[in-house]
Amino acid sequence: MEKVLQMASENGIVIFSKSTCCLSYTVQMLFQQLGTHPCIHDLDHDPEGKEVEKALMRMGCGGPVPAVFIDGNLVGSTNEVMSLHLSGTLLPMLGAHRAKLH
């Protein structure tokens, strides 16, 4: 769990994912379309990936991936992220992490 918290606190937006997960890909694309550059951590390429998955579940993430953190805080998995986006509350949470669009 320490690795998860460290990564989440060192980066503005962190998405724990798996390279073969379509839901992870969808969430990543949403964040990119919203003008952010999240730190993507593919658990299937991490030797400690299984332990990280277990830590995410213990932290309350609905599914092991994707797990989204913004400013060190667990936002949740796909359902939570999409609900925040549809309700209009995700964009304000991204604040300074959004690139200035010209």
Rank of each mutant, 00 (worst) to 15 (best):
K54Q: 08
K54T: 11
K54W: 03
K54N: 10
A55P: 06
L56H: 07
L56C: 07
L56M: 12
L56R: 03
M57C: 05
R58S: 07
R58H: 12
M59N: 01
M59E: 06
M59R: 00
G60C: 07
C61G: 04
G63Q: 10
P64L: 04
P64C: 05
V65L: 12
V65I: 14
P66L: 04
A67W: 10
A67T: 06
V68Y: 05
V68D: 03
V68I: 07
F69A: 02
F69H: 02
I70T: 01
D71M: 04
G72F: 10
G72P: 13
N73M: 13
N73V: 11
L74C: 08
L74H: 04
V75Q: 08
G76V: 14
G76K: 10
G76C: 12
G76S: 08
S77I: 15
N79I: 15
N79W: 10
N79G: 05
E80H: 04
E80T: 15
V81P: 00
V81H: 01
V81G: 02
S83G: 06
H85F: 15
H85M: 05
H85Y: 15
L86V: 09
S87T: 15
G88E: 11
T89I: 13
T89W: 11
L90A: 01
L90N: 05
L90F: 13
L91E: 15
L91T: 14
L91Q: 14
M93W: 00
M93P: 00
L94Y: 06
G95C: 03
G95Q: 11
G95N: 13
A96M: 05
A96L: 08
A96K: 07
H97Y: 14
H97M: 06
H97G: 01
